[in-house]
Design a protein around this nucleic acid. Sequence first.
DNA 1: CAAATATAAATGAACATTCATTCATTTACA
DNA 2: TGTAAATGAATGAATGTTCATTTATATTTG
Lengths: 207, 207
Amino acid sequence: MNECSFIFVPGMRIRDTHKETLVRKNAISILLRDGLDGFSMQKLAKACGISVGTLYIYYKNKEDLIVRLGIEEGKRMLQETMKGFSPDMPFAEGLKKQWENRSAYWLKNQEAAKFYEKIKRTHYAGPIQDEITKSFRPVMQAFVKNAIANKQLHFMSFESYWSVAFGPLYTLLEFENKGKSVGNRPYKFSKKTMYETLELVLKALTP
Amino acid sequence: MNECSFIFVPGMRIRDTHKETLVRKNAISILLRDGLDGFSMQKLAKACGISVGTLYIYYKNKEDLIVRLGIEEGKRMLQETMKGFSPDMPFAEGLKKQWENRSAYWLKNQEAAKFYEKIKRTHYAGPIQDEITKSFRPVMQAFVKNAIANKQLHFMSFESYWSVAFGPLYTLLEFENKGKSVGNRPYKFSKKTMYETLELVLKALTP
DNA sequence: CAAATATAAATGAACATTCATTCATTTACA
DNA sequence: TGTAAATGAATGAATGTTCATTTATATTTG
């Protein structure tokens, strides 16, 4: 059942891999500019300067295209979030690492991050989350388990923990995303606000 | 410039106000079922059992329809969130009230709440947020100001405060929304988790 | 009271676009 | 030269919106 296997055949024309990046970048920027209901295959093909038919060589259909881009970007983001992180780390240190990684990625890859956050709230989210989850759930669970065992984290329900540990960060990054916070206050994400907030979160979670 | 003013004219046929509810309910359920890109005016008209043309009597166009429904639901939700709340309340009490109101509304009006959360993340969000903001910004600002003045809340940036005060609640409600939390863990919102989380938040924010 | 009237509500067929998707054909390369 | 990549015109369904027409009703008139 390996979709990637292939039989070598002489004379096979090589697929233009540069084109995959082209499609991804244009798809993301159209989706952000025009929204999900302003996105179409013909618009995408035109933006890429390729034929509509070509899109159907790379992707089974529109849904497949959106879902696969979502999975790709989600994995990329989580990969970056986990850089230099290990579930054996002391709790405060590990959480800090994740906050730093996540926000650094967000600021460096604004389009990709906005795209992922947007697509997560559509009806395409299901298969995307399923795929992402598979890869990262074990690491995150181990981290919490260790922290509680080592008395670096209060005993509490997993959802309570997660919502306090990451809810505030996501809220700040959403503000950054819009450029505005609550009440349309102009907002620019800064390390200062981030560390200020992280400190509060650690105060809440740690003994 | 009052759009609502009208000149009384004999023989005016009365608009069927029941129909406005019909349109709103169907629009919301189509949007939740089929997503923004699965929503269309003809589909909506058919679901309501009325003519497409009628929709264009009530709403200028599709965007106007979505935006106005968003504003309506957003205002309704915030109205409920503020029930029995006053910016003069002691901080912990006021925050608790808002958490309770918001979650109660969410559980009682699941469709409306899901709709609002979804539409907030689309390109229709701008004008919706602008309108909502106007009504509730002053109250929320006064609450924080009072709390800091009375030393019931640490001095901190507004964004830091907001993200910690409400980020975790929104995260829990999103879990409830999906029926799953992180890593596809099945999740059902309960007052127990809510109060457990609120306690952590208060620990973070109050001296 | 009942018929006529005036008005806006409501209709739905019709419009030009745009949509997702297909496929016979052409192109480029190992 | 054989192969898969790439094309793009074509398809039929669906899109947002319009508008000439019909319907319902509050008021006026007889």
